[in-house]
Amino acid sequence: MDWIQILSNTASSILSPATIGYALAALGLAVHFGYAGLLNMGIAGFMAIGAYGYAISILTFDLPWWLAAMIGLVAAAIFALILGVPTLRLRGDYLAIVTIAAAEVVRLLFLTTAFDDVTGSADGLSGYHASFREANPIPPGMYGFGPWVYNENQWWVRILGLLTLAIAVLVVWMLMRSPWGRVLKGIREDEDAVRALGKNAFAYKLQALVLGGVLAAAGGIVYALPSAVSPGVYVTSLTFFVWTALLLGGAATVFGPLLGSLIFWVLQTFLSNFLPALVQAGVLPFMTQIQAGTLRFILVGVALMLLVIFMPQGILGNKKELTFVK
């Protein structure tokens, strides 16, 4: 078994765009669920809109990459408004069903052959990197040390991703320490009580939905930045994986989503290298390599169940907050 390779791949995933993308999406979900109590089960839809908004703006409308990214974020904000205005009055679990359905509708719209020219239907979109890479100030070459050696384009993606994440964390952290965050947390605890105190609960929930949606879209863009946009990524499983990452780190915390995403991807990468290696080494004789690959998704499901039952506050959550959010 090649331990060096396994550990190197695992360590490399700490800085992967997937980890950063998940962290952004999970942070958005923390705003939705952890702070505002909104059961958004459609985070994959927001990520898809961000990624497609970015890719389509470049490929179809020939816009520069930064404007394309803006468009992806604005599109997610509009989606949040369209989704939120009618549905935020509904009870929590209804919101879950509406959002998961809306995310599926979004995915099917990107997938259908009816808009093949723009969306690429089942093939997705790729080849939108030119403008982004032109803006790269890093001279060509390989940089870094140990497992973290990347070329200039890979670094450019990671640097921008981390920068976005840093800004997002700062914004969320400041918001949640402000009176605005106080109102939001109040709404999570009891919406009626907050309304009785003269706060427009609906407006706050809508603002939270838009903010979280924009963060998730940013995550979608970072996730798609280095490679391609594929409709197969934005399935409900993605939503559930982001939820797992969030609950792992702690739903009502700012750094929990980061830690959760990091652990999620480090473990995923480790298992995806380690399990097949075990099979190859003959340690798991009853399993094929493909089955070993599937095993880690089973583990994600089991982990999600155990987390929710035994550690609902997550790793960074306050022990006193043993009551699950609502």
Partner: peptide, 17 residues
């Protein structure tokens, strides 16, 4: 409807308009 996971002080400050 005390807002359980807010502190008592936060509850109070929420009341101000």
């Amino acid at each position: 409807k005390a807002l359980g996971l807010l502190t008592v002080l936060e509850n109070m400050k929420l009341g101000a308009t």
